[in-house]
Nucleic acid binder design. Structure first.
Lengths: 326, 326
DNA sequence: CCAGCTCATGGTATCGCTAACAGGCTCTCC
DNA sequence: GGAGAGCCTGTTAGCGATACCATGAGCTGG
């Protein structure tokens, strides 16, 4: 920086000002400095800047498994929003979902002086991990429950599940089975709640809950069991990958979709329209959730104490895997 | 740090040593310092450390679309390896794949004093972006070609495609059609080359190349066209998602898989075993690629000039979408 | 008993930048 | 024409750590 200052015939302070508050420098001086910056290919040292300002322009994301479609898409949304605002994103992935690791992840990021942290761990353990946060560190949660001490951006799982369930009932099905995600996942329990509430509101029997682990494999295994129950005519599956396994199991066992059984998924992965049959599902706009989370975080970093929750509405996408009850 | 030093009755310098070179401090003193560290919940300020040492413990990843299965899995592998070595990962995603953006992504990371950069952009433009790198910055590429000026970790696409093609020929098919990924993607051209070379080596006709864009949609559209060509009995598709579209198109047009047409995919996404029919495909161990890339980068950071290329072998996974030619 | 070594620790300078204040210049306006 | 208000720009100090060298204690060996 000293060199740039010398080349431009000004002091280091002026160079600093050109970079941080250009309007405070006379245009002519500014031009000379910028020319010198280019000439020497000068780049400010962010470590030094962080040291004195305390702000780094980096935000941290704590996440679990970024190969899952939802978290990966959310992360991507966050990254895009961050790029547009000249933030950089550091990620701390967790080997397991529990309080200890979440706390450790946040610590790891904090030690790098991130300006804020977004936690993408839609699991009950996240709540514990967010209980006693280091004071002064802005934190936002993605997909968490309502009882968190931090702002939350999330898709309204309850509403999405309710829509899926109502759709099936409206086709004439007596009731709807639900294959849920693993217990303790916030998304999973939100979908269970939405499903159950619609059945209860409509006075339908609430059948036994089935529990998978998000994988197509678990959908397939549980689907085989379901295929043996002749009174099952409508299944709401908690994500598209499990739904894919269910579709295959039903087909193998000779039950036609949608003639014999209707199936609804959740997520609307890009491939859902190419399942056999094309899958009716609930679209979640993960990218939008990521962007909302980033906005919430920006607000907190700026000292805002405003909104604590931003819900993104899911959308039912009707394709060919659902049909009227026989 | 001063406070810790005082509480432990030592100088700041000793505290620093306890944290960076514990063996140089008498065990007894070390214990006192560590106790003080815990008591005050002291955390070193990484910015200050970076300022003086020049090393940050952060590595950067430049990537394109982290919602794609391959890049997401690779990123995850890198992150896991990094965590195990106490590195943090910053990501810079690119709005478009070209020289300018890649350079800008690297610059963005460099301005944060990352210790090294891994570029996950298996596209020809990456090569240009890697031509004139800032000197002194260790860079490793993932999935790039052979002519890069930096070390590369990659899956051997050529070998994988060759295996897939030979598998189809061994089932008695006269020749094999190939639906490739978009031009200029390294993976895509590697697979094309492997496919073509086997056909030529076996003296088979090399049919016109078909080109998709990695999406199930493009697979579906091109699959519909292929379904009309009765002499097509074997298709090697450049990724599983496109293969899924092809499967659906063939089915819709009344062509049975594998009885009439055999289909092989590439990637082995977790769902491939639940396609209809279960997809024969080429498994790529993306996680391993990520880990190898990280190892290469660590080596470069440490000043190594060793190996420039680490190939990960893909594996043919035979399922039910391929069968003997009629 | 002391030169000469090792080992543990401390003092000081410095990394590159910006906050806070200081000062000089121009301009306005009575 | 001079006080006062702006506007630019410069000077100084310090952010929190580590590199480097100095220092003193304890030990070895002739």
């Amino acid at each position: 920086m000293e060199d740039v200052a010398e080349l431009a015939g000004v002091s280091a302070m002026t160079v600093s000002r050109v970079l941080n508050a250009p309007e405070k420098v006379r245009p002519e001086t500014r031009a000379r400095v910028l020319a010198a910056v280019r000439e020497l290919d000068y780049r400010p040292n962010s470590a030094a800047r962080v040291l004195v300002t305390g702000r780094s322009g980096v935000l941290g994301v704590v996440c679990f498994d970024t190969t899952l479609y939802g978290p990966a898409s959310t992360l991507f949304g966050i990254e895009q929003a961050a790029r547009d605002s000249d933030y950089l994103v550091s990620i701390a992935s967790l080997p397991a979902l529990n309080r200890t690791w979440i706390t450790r992840g946040i610590d790891r990021l904090r030690s790098q002086s991130v300006d804020g942290v977004i936690v993408v761990a839609p699991h009950e353990s996240a709540a514990e991990g967010l209980r006693n946060l280091p004071p002064g560190l802005p934190v936002v949660d993605v997909g968490g429950g309502t009882d968190l001490p931090v702002p939350v951006a999330a898709v309204d799982q309850y509403a999405g599940a309710a829509r899926a369930t109502r759709h099936l009932l409206s086709l004439g099905h007596r009731t709807v089975r639900h294959l849920s995600g693993p217990p303790n996942w916030i998304d999973a329990s939100g979908r269970v709640a939405g499903w159950r509430s619609v059945l209860e509101a409509e006075g339908r029997e609430v059948p036994e809950l089935l529990v998978g682990d998000w994988t197509a494999y678990s959908g397939y295994e549980i689907g085989k069991r379901l295929a043996h129950e002749p009174d099952v005519t409508a299944i709401f599956v908690a994500n598209d990958h499990m739904a894919m396994g269910v579709l295959r199991a039903l087909r193998e066992m000779g039950r036609r979709v949608p003639e014999d059984v209707s199936v609804v998924g959740f997520d609307d992965v890009p491939e859902a329209a190419y399942f056999w049959p094309p899958l009716t599902t609930v679209r979640q706009n993960f990218g939008e959730v990521g962007r909302q989370a980033f906005q919430l975080l920006l607000d907190r970093i700026a000292g805002g104490e405003g909104e604590a929750r931003r819900m993104v509405e899911p959308e039912l996408v009707v394709r060919e895997s659902t049909g009227v009850s026989r």
